[in-house]
Simulated scan of single mutants.
Amino acid sequence: MSSILYMEAPMSFEERNTWAGLVASVPGVIVYTVWMLVIARDTPVDRIDWVWPMVSTIVASIVVAIAVSIVWGIVQSRRDPDTDHRSDVRDREIATQGDRVGQAFLVFGGLAALVLCAVEAPLFWIANAVYAGFVLSAIIGSLARLGLYYRGMP
């Protein structure tokens, strides 16, 4: 019953941005991963040109997230123009908690990259360890935020 009541409440700017980030980043990660797997079938890992595929999927994900957030905000404000959709103290606390959860995965990615550097692994693996840390940090942190929005703060 409480989730039904919640869905009727207006979505804040922060919650909308969290959803927009997930909508954009998950497909971006999937595209990059498939791209690399296809290339890796025929190319040795130390010869894979990973830079432009990684940069392009990151940039595309950011652009899509911004576009989704803007369009969603316009639709939301037109549908309910009298409602205040700004962030409040609760949004900032949820963002802080979500960031704390996500940061652990960023640390794991950094540590994995350091270990790969120590064993002189190809740059492909080092870069992808860092990328995986960023991706997991963003996705898991966003999921934690959404969990807090829908289940409440502890």
Rank of each mutant, 00 (worst) to 15 (best):
A24Y: 09
S25G: 04
S25W: 12
P27F: 05
V29N: 04
I30Y: 11
I30M: 14
Y32H: 11
Y32D: 06
Y32M: 06
T33S: 15
T33W: 13
V34Y: 15
W35H: 14
M36Y: 08
L37W: 11
V38Q: 13
V38Y: 06
I39L: 10
R41F: 04
D42R: 10
T43W: 01
P44E: 01
V45R: 11
R47A: 13
R47Q: 15
W50I: 08
V51W: 15
P53H: 03
M54S: 12
M54K: 06
V55C: 07
S56W: 11
I58Q: 06
I62W: 05
I62E: 01
I62P: 00
A67E: 00
S69A: 15
I70G: 07
V71N: 03
W72I: 00
G73Q: 01
G73K: 00
I74V: 15
I74S: 09
I74M: 14
I74G: 08
S77H: 08
R78C: 07
R79T: 01
D80Q: 14
P81T: 01
T83K: 10
D84W: 02
D84K: 08
H85E: 03
R90C: 01
R90I: 09
D91K: 04
D91W: 05
R92F: 09
R92N: 09
I94Q: 01
I94L: 05
T96Y: 12
T96G: 07
G98C: 06
R100A: 13
V101F: 00
V101H: 00
V101A: 05
Q103D: 06
Q103G: 13
